[in-house]
Structure formats: structure tokens, C-alpha cells
Design a protein around this nucleic acid. Structure first.
Length: 327
DNA sequence: AATAGAGCCAACCGCTCTTCT
DNA sequence: TAGAAGAGCGGTTGGCTCTAT
């Protein structure tokens, strides 16, 4: 599929550089074409990234450097992940956002393969939607408490369940295999209990991507063809490779040996979920039957990786609103 | 089957910070 | 040291897709 519309006339950004101005004559905007993607990929493969304005010129792209950079970082990079945000990633986003607010790029550093843009979009479309349903501001203390004391523990439970199911399946399906047996027991060994979640102080989240192959997604193996270009094909071509629900196994709950040089990565001993998610006194005593809620229906927000946009039913919303009113 | 509305996401905008000369 | 250019960030928007009616 070739282009499409070229919208707008000229870039009036205050940050527009002289180099940009020189290119203004026939600058392209809007969606990228397959040919443009090819040019950019091939040029970067040969010359590397950086110096985006000159890169755009030298690559023969009628785009601004900013546009090239954005396209590369958000879409064409070989290690960019696509597909649904997994439970683990949701949990990470909620936690990191509670720390840093809208520091999307900083949050993205802890979610390998995810871009700040993707995380930002996730937040705006999913999380803010739920805040709206609860009729409270996404930045309000009430909403933050709801995230911290309800959603995040809930996510951890779901992650546990998924891990246990994976272990069970692995064990059952290949019980004759000694390797599988070891794997399953290892998973059980590292599984966490509810008491960890609510405050025994043992749970520390390990950074993703330690081995570069987290979540069962093969990074950097996406070979580029016109067919899997964003404009030629939708992200489905990528999404098909990504399990909607993480195949999380043992590493996630390991106390990590800090193999990442990024000082911002969590380390054992730093505040973890267990410490940061202790329920405020009486929070769960306002009539919130967490387990009953789970069993009566499974329609929690961000309830699972493949149904992360589950809508709340009216009963849930009413129920949570009562909790918020009681805070 | 047609249409309206909502959801999603790629791309753009405008600003700030950093690097270079 | 100051100004220009480059890079990066967060906010916003436009259009495509999906879903409900």
C-alpha cells in the first residue's frame, strides 16, 4: 500500500532547525510508506543511528530528522515489542507510574521493547478509562490507592495463577521429561504467596529483559519485509508472535542478581510491592470481599493479558465507588 | 447491512535539555 | 560563554478499526 495523504503544509514548530527549514520544500508527513521504511532501515543498518537530520537527508528521505527518529524508535527498531501489554507489564507500569508519574520514557526503560509512546497510549486509553468509570481523577489519591491496594495485588494474583497454570501444563504435558519436571518444580519454588503480596517483605520485582528473552518473545528476530511493515501490514503481523498472556515462569520472582547497569533498575532490598502495597488500616475491612468479588465475576480491569480492556460491570463500579467513598 | 460512537495507536507538535562550534 | 543545532520528552491529534445499535 502506498501513500496516502500528506497532511499539513509546513512545520511551524519553534524547535524547527535550519536543517529542517532547508528541507521544507517537499517534506512528507503522515504515515510512512514501505519504501520509506526500507530506506531508513537500510541506512541505519549501514551507517548506524544518530544525527537524525543529516540521516534523513543522506538516506533520501523527505522527512524531518525528528520524524525519522520517531519512526525508528517506535516502530522499526528490531527489538521493539508489539502486541498486548502483558499482566507483568501492566503491573510494572502501574508501579512505576506511581513512583514517577508521566515519565514515560523512564518507565519504558524498565519495559524492554516497549516504547514510551506505547506505554503512554496504554495509560491514556486503559487506565484513564477506568478512572473515568470510577468517576475520579486519575491523579487523585483515591484512584492511586485503588490501583495500589486493589488492582496491583490483583494483578499479582493473576500472574501467580498464570505461572502455576503454566507449570502444571508443562508438568502434565511432558511429565516423562526430567527437564520439564525440574522446570515445574522450579516455578513452584519461586511462586509467591498472598502473604508476600500484602506485606511480609519478600517480594521484589525483578527487572525484565535480563536474558533478553523475557515473556517468551523473541527479540530481534523480526526479519523485515514489506509485508510486515506497519503501513503494509497492521501490527497483527507482530502481534501474532506475542502471547497475549505472558508465559512468565520463574525468573520474574527471583531476587535478581543485578545484571543491569542501569541504576534505576530495581534491586533486591529496594522497596518492592510487598512493602509498598501494604493496605492502609481497614482498607479491606470496608466490606470489600476481594475473593468473593473474584469468584462472582472475573471482570476486573486489566484482568488478564488478553482481555486487558475488560469493561467493569455496573456492580463492580458501584462497589469500588463505595470503597473509594469510604477512604 | 448501514451507521454512529468508542477505542486505539501512529505520528505530529511544542517545549526543554544537551551538545557542538 | 553564547548561540545554534540536535536530541529527547510529554501532550495532543487524526484517522483507522472495532463494536453496538
Amino acid at each position: 500500500m502506498l501513500m496516502m495523504d500528506v497532511k499539513g503544509n509546513s512545520n511551524s514548530s519553534s524547535s524547527t532547525t535550519q536543517s529542517d527549514e532547508e528541507m521544507m520544500g517537499d517534506l512528507r508527513r503522515g504515515p510512512w510508506t514501505v519504501e520509506e521504511d526500507f530506506k531508513l532501515i537500510n541506512y541505519i543498518a549501514t551507517h548506524g543511528e544518530g544525527r537524525w537530520n543529516s540521516l534523513a537527508r543522506c538516506a533520501g528521505l523527505k522527512r524531518t530528522g525528528k520524524s525519522c527518529r520517531l519512526r525508528w524508535l517506535n516502530y522499526l527498531r528490531p527489538d521493539v515489542r508489539r502486541g498486548n501489554i502483558t499482566l507483568e507489564e501492566q503491573l510494572m507500569i502501574l508501579e512505576l507510574h506511581s513512583r514517577w508519574g508521566n515519565r514515560w520514557s523512564k518507565i519504558a526503560q524498565h519495559l524492554p521493547g516497549r516504547t514510551d509512546n506505547e506505554i503512554k497510549n496504554y495509560w491514556r486509553t486503559r487506565v484513564q478509562k477506568h478512572a473515568k468509570q470510577l468517576k475520579c481523577d486519575v491523579n487523585s489519591k483515591q484512584f492511586k490507592d485503588t490501583m495500589r491496594y486493589l488492582w496491583m495485588p490483583r494483578l499479582i494474583e493473576r500472574i501467580q495463577a498464570a505461572a502455576a497454570a503454566t507449570a502444571t501444563n508443562t508438568s502434565t504435558a511432558t511429565s516423562a521429561s526430567p527437564v520439564a519436571t525440574v522446570s515445574a518444580s522450579a516455578t513452584n519454588q519461586h511462586s509467591i504467596s498472598n502473604s508476600d503480596v500484602v506485606g511480609t517483605g519478600n517480594l521484589v520485582m525483578a527487572p525484565h529483559g535480563i536474558n533478553g528473552n523475557d515473556f517468551g518473545v523473541s527479540h530481534g528476530t523480526q526479519s523485515y519485509t514489506p509485508e510486515n511493515s506497519s503501513t503494509a501490514a497492521s501490527s497483527d503481523s507482530f502481534a501474532a508472535q506475542v502471547s497475549p498472556v505472558s508465559d512468565l515462569t520463574t525468573d520474574y520472582y527471583n531476587i535478581p542478581v543485578n545484571r543491569n547497569t542501569n541504576p534505576d533498575y530495581f534491586q533486591a532490598g529496594q522497596v518492592g510491592y510487598s512493602e509498598s502495597m501494604i493496605s492502609p488500616p481497614g482498607f479491606f475491612n470496608h466490606g470489600l470481599d476481594f475473593q468473593a468479588m473474584e469468584h462472582s465475576n472475573n471482570q476486573w480491569p486489566m484482568d488478564s493479558g488478553d482481555t486487558s480492556d475488560n469493561m467493569w460491570n455496573l456492580e463492580d463500579i458501584w462497589f469500588l465507588q463505595q470503597q473509594l467513598n469510604n477512604l
